[in-house]
């Protein structure tokens, strides 16, 4: 069953169409990669999905509930978690407090912050202020916070950007495991094709605000339109 359904979503800045009628679905437990060159509209799509930007037209459904017009905090409470291209954490708080804030935001009392810190593997530094963390660790803390939200849909905007290659695989393995065990739908954008083809079950390719290819990694890899866009093949 589709957790996220996007239908004919459009958004323009002035005269430039950032999204020109995008439609696709993401199912529970499914990991979908969103690819495309810079300026394809990936970040715009994420921002529209989590409510930071208002779409001009089209529909976004989360398990049948429309997200259009919802503020970011509403979208979050409906079950959408998001990580940012540049990891966003609360610098004045410790890792533990960061996760606690996430738990408090949804009035979650059952779970403890440790549970999530354990899952991402930063337990021993739980009481260090985030301002003192290395970037890779910060990304993990951010992931722990998002998981503490217990989302049904996880949006990850370039989750591995800025990380060392060996860290990338570890982070994505973690995300994939969690998606499977919690039955979360994951949509991530990515430039690193090794990550995309290593972890995505399905790939959606955007170009100039339109979906130009969609399917399994192998199908998309051989899609002529995509090769044209990426490699300039005629």
């Amino acid at each position: 069953m589709a957790i996220l359904s996007i239908r004919a979503l459009a958004k323009a800045y002035g005269g430039v169409k950032a999204l020109a009628g995008v439609s696709f679905d993401v199912a529970a437990g499914e990991i979908v990669a969103l690819i495309g060159p810079n300026g394809a509209g990936k970040t715009t799509l994420f921002n529209v999905l989590n409510g930071q930007l208002a779409a001009d037209s089209g529909e976004v459904l989360l398990e049948g509930t429309s997200l259009v017009g919802c503020a970011p905090h509403r979208v979050a409470r409906l079950g959408v978690g998001r990580t940012f291209q540049v990891a966003a954490t609360f610098g004045s708080m410790t890792a533990r407090e960061n996760v606690q804030v996430a738990l408090q935001a949804i009035h979650e009392r059952h779970y403890k912050a440790e549970t999530f810190l354990e899952r991402v593997g930063v337990t021993e530094r739980a009481d260090t202020p985030c301002a003192a963390f290395a970037y890779g660790e910060l990304k993990r803390v951010e992931l722990a916070m998002v998981l503490a939200q217990r989302p049904r849909l996880l949006l990850m905007d370039e989750p591995t950007a800025g990380m060392a290659p060996e860290e990338r695989g570890a982070l994505m393995t973690l995300a994939a495991e969690l998606a499977r065990s919690e039955n979360i739908a994951v949509l991530f954008s990515e430039h690193d094709m090794d990550v995309v083809f290593g972890f995505a079950q399905r790939v959606v390719a955007l170009h100039l605000g339109e979906v130009i290819a969609e399917g399994s990694p192998d199908e998309v890899r051989s899609n002529p339109r995509l090769r044209e866009v990426y490699l300039g093949d005629a």
Binding site: N50, Q52, A71, P72, H73, A76, R77, G81, R82, F84, A88, T89, F90, V101, A102, A105, I106, E142, M145, V146, Q149
Partner: peptide
């Protein structure tokens, strides 16, 4: 940004 993405108004 992070706060609102966590559901904080």
């Amino acid at each position: 940004l992070r706060a609102s993405a966590l559901g904080i108004n």
